[in-house]
Amino acid sequence: MVRVDGSGGSNSLIGVRGLDKTYHRGGGEIRVLQGLNLDVDKSDFVAFMGPSGSGKTTLLNLLGGLDVPTRGNITVAGDEITHMSGHKLTEWRARHVGFVFQMYNLIPVLTAFQNVELPLLLTKLSKAQRRNHVETALGVVGLADRMSHYPRQLSGGQEQRVAIARAIVADPTFLLCDEPTGDLDRQSADEIMALIERLVREYGKTVLMVTHDPVVARRAGTTLHLEKGVLVESAEPERVAAGGRHEI
């Protein structure tokens, strides 16, 4: 269950309290997030919407330990990540977070297999165990027959599937998807969303996703709208998207 009022207990998988993020630009301050609260349970599928510059990606970066908040704290599976050192945070990301980016961000000189294997190279798994994990992950995303293909030999949808396989191969605590369908046509976008839904439904994955697309957002269990630096639960993504730009 997803809550944005700070009422979630310590049982939440992800707990965010009083999160502030301020950027300093051109001598002025831009306060992107203001005292934001969020609780996400295991196997929740949350979509974040909001106009450009509303801080969706900033929130995702903070949840993924890629950036540090100005104030507040984030707890994931009992780990308070906001005060971790850079090195600890790197290790934490490797163990707990799977990233899916809008532009796939595969390594062009590596095959699909090798791209998916990348997170496992940081573990102590043997070569055979790594192979087994990679084959399973590529099987889940339906690309078992494309293992030796390079990214340039795959379609956009297939590349994003490989990126999802890379995100899930080390069995992270949760997935962070930043506009996962933003660079895809409608059919490919539907396929990717069906895959993400399946990861939540069949494999119990927790997914936090940023999207501009109300059709995509509707696939999530909960859609949250970033408004003036705080999260608001929205029942109708279409209305939010059609409602124009919300300046912070």
């Binding site: 993924g64 890629l66 850079g86 090195h87 790197t90 290790e91 990301r93 490797a94 163990r95 990233f99 980016f101 961000n105 390594i107 990348l118 997170p119 940081l122 890379r166």
Partner: peptide, 14 residues
């Protein structure tokens, strides 16, 4: 640059 950022994002240390 972007690839190196991805490496770091998925857990490769500095």
């Amino acid at each position: 640059t972007a690839e190196l950022a991805v490496f770091k994002a998925i857990g490769y240390s500095d």
